[in-house]
């Protein structure tokens, strides 16, 4: 039986649900889905408390996507203080290796054992406080980071679930299938599958082009008896929003992204996806 008194178990005692965002393939939108998931959960009620943990140690995207580039993590007697995307309200807590770097161009070149150590610290040393949801963004693949995450979180396994993100092309679906085999091997329940970047509307003539094909994710969900959570078309406004959120000075209140995101067309679609997910969490 997993050790209920481990530092990770004790630290995560106050976290109700942990949702891991996975995909075998790179660049299909794990980080943007994690960000959107956190933003939507945060907006789902005026008291919802949400955390987002970025375990992509060599390619952290969450700080940039939430407009928190340049922020740092402080230490306190009760743990590392996360960076809050909503300022003093402190209902949207973020942690990423990006906050620990002195210089944003610095590369983190680590082999597995060091990654494992960092993930253990993220899970045991961050002062999350009470959280309704902790969203975890992962790197592509099924390797050290994923195995370490599941190993350290074994004591809280009953609160874990996962979402699989894919794009519609065959090369992406093949990796999504590997990712699904991984979740089955480690007994991780799946809330469902999201098909991302499915179709693009030409801003000039309105023609819909399937720039990265379409429908493959939905078909895979049917075949594998997974819940299909929905498809998200290519949204150029979203790219710019997740990209251009300008770095800010330490301590200043970020009000842009939360409001800006809520008015995008992706936010409306994502709201339904989140409803379908939360339904299953009870």
């Amino acid at each position: 039986m997993a050790d209920q008194s481990s530092p990770v178990a004790r630290r995560l005692q106050t976290v109700k649900n942990i949702i891991i965002v996975l995909s075998g393939k790179g660049g299909v939108g794990k980080s943007s889905v994690s960000t959107q998931l956190a933003l939507n959960l945060h907006a789902s009620s005026p008291t919802a408390k949400v955390g987002i943990l970025d375990v992509d140690l060599t390619g952290p995207s969450i700080p940039r996507m939430l407009g928190l580039d340049g922020h740092g993590v402080h230490q306190s007697s009760s743990g590392w203080v996360p960076v809050y995307a909503d300022g003093p309200e402190a209902r949207l807590a973020c942690m990423s290796v990006g906050f620990l770097l002195k210089n944003k161009g610095d590369s983190v070149v680590w082999r597995g054992p060091k990654k494992n150590g960092m993930i253990r610290q993220f899970l045991s040393d961050v002062r999350w406080g009470e959280l309704d949801y902790l969203v975890i963004d992962t790197p592509p693949g099924t390797s050290d980071e994923h195995l370490s995450l599941l190993e350290h979180m074994a004591p809280v396994h009953s609160r874990l679930s996962a979402v699989i993100v894919t794009t519609p092309q065959a090369v992406a679906l093949m990796d999504a299938m590997k990712c699904l085999s991984f979740t089955r091997a480690v007994n991780l329940p799946i809330l469902g599958l999201i098909e991302n970047m499915s179709g693009y509307v030409c801003p000039c003539c309105g023609e819909i082009s399937n720039v990265f094909s379409t429908g493959g994710g939905e078909e895979m969900a049917r075949r594998e008896e997974l819940r299909f959570l929905g498809s998200l078309p290519v949204d150029t406004e979203l790219v710019t929003l997740l990209d251009a959120a300008e770095p800010e000075k330490e301590g200043s209140v970020r009000e842009g992204i939360l409001q800006q995101y809520s008015s995008t067309s992706s936010a409306k679609l994502f709201k339904k996806i989140v409803e379908r997910m939360v339904e299953q969490l009870g």
Binding site: L57, V73, H74, Q75, S76, S77, S78, G79, W80, V97, L100, L101, K102, N103, D106, V108, V109, W110, R111, K114, M118, Q121, D125
Partner: peptide
């Protein structure tokens, strides 16, 4: 105090 590490420091990879 739970110290925050600096990822850049460390041996030549």
């Amino acid at each position: 105090m739970i110290a925050v590490p600096s990822p850049e420091e460390g041996p030549n990879p």
